[in-house]
Write a protein that binds this DNA or RNA. Sequence first.
DNA 1: CCACGCTCCTGCGCGC
DNA 2: TGCGCGCAGGAGCGTG
Length: 271
Amino acid sequence: MPELPEVETTRRGILPVLTGQVVTGCRVRNPRLRLPVSDLMESRVTGRTLLDVRRRAKYLLLIFDPGCIVVHLGMSGSLRVVPAELPPGPHDHVDLVFGASALRLRDPRRFGLMVWHDGDPLAHPLLRHLGPEPLEAGFDAGWLYRATRATQVPIKQALMDARRVVGVGNIYASESLFRARISPLVSARTLGRVRCGRLAGCVRETLQDAILAGGSTLRDFVGGDGRPGYFQQQYFVYGRDGQSCRVCGKTIVKAIIAQRATFWCPHCQRR
DNA sequence: CCACGCTCCTGCGCGC
DNA sequence: TGCGCGCAGGAGCGTG
């Protein structure tokens, strides 16, 4: 599942290749995504010039003149630039055609979406109520401290709530808490400003490192430039229950928090 | 407002 | 070796 680093890597793959190109057509083979791809997509987008590729949370925003396409890759989606005539695979649901190239949306599980939106993408109902970006200045000790005063939930769950900060998925929630040496079980509101600041910094570092690594390895993720998989990122805790902590050697444990698999080192991470 | 559980879907890995 | 079950995951949405 693409987490934020994979989405950002996709953005960086697509941006230099397709910006300034004109859409010559749109092929929708299967509109049945999380939100249906509109019948009107082709007529809206054809003839328009792609001006920019932006990202908000895990949404990719294809900016036109005016209007935009909002894309979410869900858990199994990928966007690749391919030759327009390359035969589609079974889960290649949409092609946005730019002359001899196509931006191809593949999504086996169809949890993703691709919708046309007139006007400002940030005004779209899916984006309007999102919290701060983890890699931008608004996400800091003060914000995280204030955003966690009125909740009862464990910090791991709070980190994954897009009203507090966007783009922290299940893998990087566990990884960020390990770096911050905070137990995922801690009630969010018991964290003081100092630990909030440390955690905000560790979220930023964790995501930034993953972006630098080109996104963590996904079984079915391929970057926007079509180059296949990335090297396996070394996780500190995610998926490592029963194995020894890379820092202290003690055993990594797993528990389900808010229906999500959660991994941590009980020795390194304190309550 | 808040918290929780459900839901969409497919591929994979494990146990028998 | 084959089958089928359960899990994984993002995030919106309905309910209490």
